[in-house]
């Protein structure tokens, strides 16, 4: 569906993003930084899933991306709530 070199470039860039976000998770320093790095890992994951789906001609790729885009913010809202200890 897409050329292999394009898939390699896109997944490589997103993998760099994930590695940098993991570095931020390890270094901290506050829980908020960890949460925002996790948010970036989730976005990079959406991109990787989309490119894998295109590369292997999986028809459900746009459905997966759609569900992830709609429901993905719930995780970061939960993390924000968790940081405050359940208080608003």
């Amino acid at each position: 569906m897409i050329p292999d070199v394009v898939a390699a470039i896109v997944i490589g860039l997103l993998a760099i993003a994930v590695v940098l976000a993991v570095v931020r998770i390890v270094r901290g320093p506050t829980p908020g930084d960890t949460a925002v790095a996790g948010d970036l890992i989730f976005f990079a994951f959406i991109g990787i899933v989309a490119v894998f789906g295109l590369a292997f001609s999986i028809d459900a790729v746009i459905d997966i991306v759609l569900i992830a885009a709609i429901l993905g913010f719930l995780s970061i809202l939960s993390l924000a709530r968790l940081l405050q200890g359940g208080q608003r």
Partner: peptide, 30 residues
Amino acid sequence: LKGVIAIVAQLLTSAIGSFALARSGYLTGS
């Protein structure tokens, strides 16, 4: 159609997520 829905949802909810995270970060002392 699915792509348009996903883009609209993504642009709306990424702003909401970062706002909530920055707010809770301020409240918890970052």
